[in-house]
């Protein structure tokens, strides 16, 4: 598959790709997609939800074990107990 819009998908993935980097990404990814193209449809396969191991549900009980300090210890930028990011217009 040629001409996939790498710029669009990089934007979707929120990764900046410079004009210099773009050709290499374009080439490598298109090559990968080409190799993906050998997959048959497998349309004789019906996907069903496997119910042999259902999810274990948790009882509705509170277990607080982390303080504000511990939670924010790895934060790149914090202030007054909150994480700080550039002003976001909704």
């Amino acid at each position: 598959m040629k001409n996939i819009d790498i710029t669009y998908f990089a934007k979707l993935a929120h990764i900046a790709v410079s004009a210099e980097e773009l050709p290499k990404f374009q080439q490598d990814i298109e090559q990968t997609l080409e190799s993906f193209g050998n997959l048959p449809e497998f349309d004789d396969v019906k996907i069903e939800i496997d119910t042999t191991n259902p999810i274990r549900l948790r009882d509705d009980k509170v277990a607080q074990t982390f303080t504000q300090e511990e939670i924010l210890a790895n934060a790149p930028k914090q202030s007054g107990g909150c994480i700080v990011i550039p002003k976001t217009v909704e």
Partner: peptide
């Protein structure tokens, strides 16, 4: 209005001090 959050055991409470009902 459950006691704890949907995918973790942190308290489900409105009006708590910021970032005190949190976990990894």
């Amino acid at each position: 209005s459950t006691e704890s959050k949907i995918f973790c055991a942190c308290k489900n409470e409105f009006g708590s001090e910021v970032n005190t009902n949190c976990c990894p």
